[in-house]
Design a binder for these strands. Structure first.
Length: 147
DNA sequence: GCCAACGTTGGC
DNA sequence: GCCAACGTTGGC
């Protein structure tokens, strides 16, 4: 799951109450569907810093709730406000994410250098999704290299 | 700041 | 339903 560290960094997440952050602001249907349909409480999460000086995996986390409506879509003062969404028929969902560890930065160039990760979705050309699945094989590879 | 790549919008 | 125009993402 990508987060801009200027918005929510791994340090911010670890400092939050219960180390939990609600993953607000996702406004892409595919990314929403991953949270709504594919994620289960306890699933592992790679906390990825994007749009920053050193993009890469900065920590580990886990899914901490099932999906529920993103409250920011109803808040006209929020930059994530969506006037086309209503509480009766919410368009955007999110899950809570609980940070578990800060890791050394596994930088984007380092990720790209690992042959086992060649098929990883986040590394595919043109990928812009802020949430992408990670295979068990890729997860093990990353956990090994992060040590 | 640039720009490739992709998603969304809206006229037809 | 097509597709041009526009907006966004995100690495560099």
């Amino acid at each position: 799951m990508k987060s801009e560290p200027d918005e929510v960094s791994i340090d911010d997440a670890l400092a939050a109450p219960g180390k939990i952050v609600p993953w607000v602001g996702v406004r892409n249907y595919q990314a929403r569907n991953f949270m709504r349909d594919a994620m289960r409480v306890g699933d592992g999460v790679l906390f990825y810093h994007s749009s920053c000086a050193e993009p890469g995996i900065a920590g580990l986390a886990e899914v901490a709730s099932t999906a529920y409506p993103d409250p920011t879509q109803f808040d006209s003062g929020s930059k994530y406000y969506d006037p086309k969404s209503t509480p009766d028929n919410p368009r955007w969902m999110l899950v809570d994410v609980r940070a578990t560890h800060k890791t050394r930065l596994l930088s984007l160039p380092e990720l790209r250098s690992l042959p086992d990760l060649a098929e990883m979705q986040i590394l595919k050309r043109g990928n812009r999704l802020s949430i992408t699945p990670v295979s068990a094989f890729e997860w093990r590879c990353i956990i090994q290299h992060i040590q």
